[in-house]
């Protein structure tokens, strides 16, 4: 047989624009950052130093203390999202998909709106709401006789990070809600009707039928939350500034990277150590995503209708 498979040029042609753009603005900068992390300032320009930047980052107490503090804070930020944002998102979606609920469209829109707001607006609006001087939070608590519960949450080490995480939850709860809502709507009525015939209704139907069917969506949401949280920066920057106060209690990897890379006040920017931190962040996210992909994703059972 002389029939060779024809070269299918059109595949390359159609892929080219996306591949080129993605390579130029994502892949090249990413690898250049990883490369830059292996250099440091020498007498004349950049000098290759191998892994010495990472040795400084993890070995020098001045750097490692900040790095671990940021990483632990980041984990707490993620935990709050997983424990609060996603269950609330699922609950809201379950309520919204109830056919007897009136004004479902209105609620859906209202809950989703904060997601499209800018971080800066959200940061400043909440800073004002919670302000002990002009904020409405103290007055509202006063109106129901709970003034004693109020404290300057954003200014206290013990509560600043949790408060910020909850603000972020408020902003983004619409995303898991929408994804789960879509997943719930895609469950065919026949399945639910069949369950009903077997006597499974109400909450039991949710736990036994719907939840297993939306598990893959929950998995996707978890990994999206993970990546977004470990790349987070904007909200903390808008609300607490570059120093992520008080006493670095709301410092996460993003703000630590920004402070190091671009410098701050008298601290001059250090692109080399900044790249090292960026690479460490990349590593953390890569490990997290791999754990998910190989540990969980492959075990989730999927159902075809």
């Amino acid at each position: 047989m002389t029939d060779r498979p024809r070269r299918r040029w059109h595949i390359a042609v159609f892929l080219a624009p996306a591949v080129l753009v993605y390579t130029a603005i994502m892949i090249i900068p990413l690898f250049d950052t990883l490369r830059l992390a292996l250099f440091n300032k020498g007498d004349d320009g950049a000098v290759f130093v191998g892994l010495r930047n990472f040795a400084t980052l993890f070995g020098d107490p001045n750097w490692s203390r900040q790095f671990w503090n940021a990483l632990i804070n980041n984990c707490w930020f993620f935990v709050i999202h997983m424990l609060v944002q996603n269950p609330i998102g699922i609950a809201l979606a379950a309520i919204l998909s109830n056919p007897r609920l009136r004004f479902a469209g209105l609620y859906r829109t209202a809950i989703f709106v904060p997601t499209i707001l800018s971080f800066v607006i959200v940061g400043f609006a909440w800073k004002l709401i919670l302000s002990p001087i002009w904020g409405i939070a103290p007055n509202m608590l006063d109106a129901v006789g709970l003034k004693s519960l109020f404290s300057p949450w954003l200014g206290k080490e013990s509560s600043a990070l949790t408060t910020l995480a909850l603000i972020s939850v408020w902003q983004f709860v619409g995303i898991p809600m929408m994804l789960i809502y879509a997943a719930l709507l895609s469950i065919p009525d026949e399945v639910l009707e069949a369950a009903e015939c077997d006597g499974i209704t109400g909450w039991a139907a949710f736990w036994k039928i719907k939840l297993p069917l939306i598990l893959p969506s929950i998995g996707i949401i978890s990994i999206l939350t993970f990546v977004a949280n470990f790349n987070a920066f904007d909200l903390i920057y808008a609300a607490q500034g570059t120093l992520a106060g008080p006493d670095f209690s709301s410092d996460i990897l993003g703000t630590f990277l920004y402070r190091t890379f671009f410098g701050f006040q008298l601290q001059l920017g250090d692109p080399y150590m900044g790249s090292a931190i960026a690479s460490a962040m990349f590593g953390v996210i890569l490990i997290g995503v791999c754990l998910y992909l190989f540990g969980i994703q492959t075990r989730i059972r999927r159902y075809q209708f």
């Binding site: 302000s131 002990p132 001087i133 300057p152 200014g155 206290k156």
Partner: peptide, 11 residues
């Protein structure tokens, strides 16, 4: 002032 911990510069 009360709540100075969360009081910002413009405040």
């Amino acid at each position: 002032g009360e709540g100075f911990e969360a009081q910002t510069y413009p405040d």
